[in-house]
């Protein structure tokens, strides 16, 4: 993850998916991910259906396939783990290209890949069509404790600034001839991280002072002015129902 990562999460657009109320979108996404995660791995057709629904949503959101695929790189470490499973798992063996692989392990690998891929793609669609602040707003309306969403909001607000401070510290060290080769050379960088923590904490105190001086008394003012339209929920629940129905049928039939 690079420092500039945060900017690439959201892709500006005006599709129906973009305009949907965040709480409806998040609820639909959550139901869909749960449906994917509970679909039995043997029901390959069900995963095809899940992928189909997802493809329709991606198309409706006008997200380029390249954008989704590039962001999917985040699950690469688990693709690695999944590919190892057939080799280390026990149980009945099958011969594939002269190599003995565990049948259960192959199913396990498929299970991890399919669910990780679909689950991550759903998150990518949500983050790709909803600005950070709107996602937090949606979570709040779904009754996630306000303190948590506020902390997350402050985190996202200051993430780029603090990452930039760390990067500058590293640049300053490199400029003075620091050549990191092994863990032992990390000491100045780790110390710099400690110093950046102190600065972050002090920034937190300054922000608190700025809040106080504008009349903050411990609770954030409610600024809620947006109205959720019924059609947002209908659309969202349509997608969620498709995923849930697929999962239920898959569970019953396998």
């Amino acid at each position: 993850m690079g420092a500039g990562h945060a900017h690439t999460l959201y892709r500006h657009g005006h599709s129906h998916v973009h305009r949907m109320a965040p709480q409806a979108k998040l609820a639909a996404a959550f139901v869909s991910v749960v449906a994917v995660a509970t679909t039995p791995r043997e029901a390959v057709w069900a995963f095809a259906l899940h992928a189909g629904v997802l493809a329709v949503v991606v198309a409706a959101a006008e997200l380029p396939l390249g954008f989704v695929l590039r962001r999917l790189l985040v699950i690469v470490p688990f693709v690695g783990v999944a590919l190892l499973i057939p080799f280390v798992a026990g149980g009945e063996q099958v011969e594939v290209l002269g190599v003995g692989l565990s049948r259960e392990g192959l199913w396990g690998a498929w299970n991890v890949l399919a669910k990780a891929g679909l689950g991550a793609s759903i998150s990518i669609v949500v983050a790709g069509t909803t600005e950070e602040a709107r996602i937090l707003e949606g979570l709040e309306r779904l009754r996630v404790p306000t303190t948590l969403t506020l902390i997350a909001g402050f985190m996202l607000r200051y993430l780029v600034l603090i990452a930039e401070e760390l990067r500058r510290a590293r640049t300053a060290m490199l400029a003075r001839g620091w050549v990191p080769r092994w863990l032992g050379d990390a000491r100045p960088a780790a110390s710099a991280a400690g110093v950046v923590f102190v600065r972050s904490y002090e920034r937190g105190e300054r922000v608190h002072a700025a809040m106080l001086s504008r009349g903050f008394t411990g609770t954030m003012p409610e600024l809620d002015t947006h109205v959720t339209s019924g059609t947002d929920w209908v659309l969202g629940m349509g997608v969620a129902t498709a995923a849930a129905a697929t999962a239920v049928v898959a569970v019953v039939t396998t």
């Binding site: 506020l150 997350a152 985190m155 603090i162 760390l166 863990l183 904490y201 105190e205 608190h208």
Partner: peptide
């Protein structure tokens, strides 16, 4: 101070996770 301090400290932890050491 909970929200600003915890929020900005969370930003620090997140940023530190993005920072690679040899």
């Amino acid at each position: 101070k909970q929200v600003p301090l915890a929020g900005i400290s969370a930003a620090f932890i997140f940023a530190a996770q993005m920072f690679n050491f040899p």
